[in-house]
């Protein structure tokens, strides 16, 4: 594709991006632009390429083709040690450390800002980081902050992961199904916090791209909705213009997700010991 307009300092852009995993074509080619400060929701069935899209923007994987620009700078050229300021990513699988307390997992969002010594201090000294604590409490985790993360419920763990992202406070927030395990009340709080309605000091002016599992939630909390299916953009509209037909078209009933659980596992000796 030619005639690529010059990069804009306040825009996030994917230009002619596609991604293949071996033989499997996951995404693209797509060209999308996200102006700074806009809150976008992406909806679509499992396996549509939503997670792949976010992973590409976060820099976890590299595109098979095309370029990605964050606020004018090519993603690849951004210094890895500074990347945390530009983009943060909350995984669908959360990927928290199960053995740590919720508090420590949330505080891990400070990793980019903190020096190694500060990190060591946070692990050894029994003092808390006030900002992490306040964000945790705001999401309803008060009283559970010092519990082992593996013992928290799915909804609580999801809020821990969201808190971690909020603590990081990057310019671009990426979230993969951030509220899928939360009850309606908490879902609203979570999404409103993410989109800067609540806690608005930091998130108000920032850009958000989130994979949302329900079209209703997408239109309610976000400015713009993109429908994705089979790696292709089906529609891209302001939230208030999304129709039932659009939604039905995206979820055409085909679930292309290939994940599944295995049968009974073989019993294992604990013979790594010697």
């Amino acid at each position: 594709m030619n005639n690529k307009p010059p990069a804009s300092v306040d825009t996030y852009r994917l230009w002619d991006v596609s991604k293949n995993f071996g033989d499997r074509h996951a995404l693209g080619p797509v060209t999308l632009e996200f102006p700074g400060g806009e809150k976008t929701a992406i909806i679509g069935p499992s396996g549509a390429g939503k997670t792949t899209l976010l992973r590409l923007i976060a820099g976890e994987i590299t595109p098979s083709q095309g370029t990605i620009e964050l606020r004018g700078a090519n993603l690849e050229s951004i210094d890895r040690t500074r990347r945390y300021r530009e983009v943060g990513f909350m995984h669908q699988q959360l990927d928290l450390v199960p053995q740590l307390s919720a508090r420590k997992n949330i505080e891990a969002g400070n990793s980019g800002r903190w020096s190694i010594f500060r990190t060591i201090a946070s692990l050894i000294l029994p003092v808390a980081d006030v900002r992490s604590e306040q964000i945790g409490k705001f999401l309803g985790l008060e009283g559970h902050l010092d519990e082992r993360t593996s013992r928290l419920s799915g909804g609580q763990q999801q809020r821990v992961a969201l808190a971690r992202l909020l603590v990081q406070a990057p310019a671009l927030y990426l979230a993969d199904e951030p509220a899928s395990s939360l009850d309606p009340g908490l879902t609203d709080i979570a999404l409103q916090t993410l989109c800067g309605v609540l806690l608005d000091k930091e998130t108000a002016g920032s850009t958000v791209i989130a994979n949302i599992h329900s079209p209703e939630l997408a239109t309610r909390h976000f400015d713009r909705v993109i429908g994705l299916n089979r790696g292709v953009v089906v529609f891209d509209k302001p939230a208030n213009q999304v129709t039932q037909t659009d939604t039905a078209y995206v979820y055409d009933g085909e679930d292309t997700d290939s994940s599944g659980t295995n049968g009974t596992a073989e019993p294992a000796f604990n013979w790594g010991r010697d």
């Binding site: 990347r83 945390y84 943060g88 990513f89 420590k104 891990a108 990793s111 980019g112 190694i116 692990l123």
Partner: peptide, 19 residues
């Protein structure tokens, strides 16, 4: 994935070792 996740939050090698 656990390492990548904190890596995106800005953790370097030593930090991901500790955290």
């Amino acid at each position: 994935p656990l390492i990548v996740s904190v890596g995106t939050a800005g953790a370097n090698g030593v930090q991901s070792l500790l955290l």
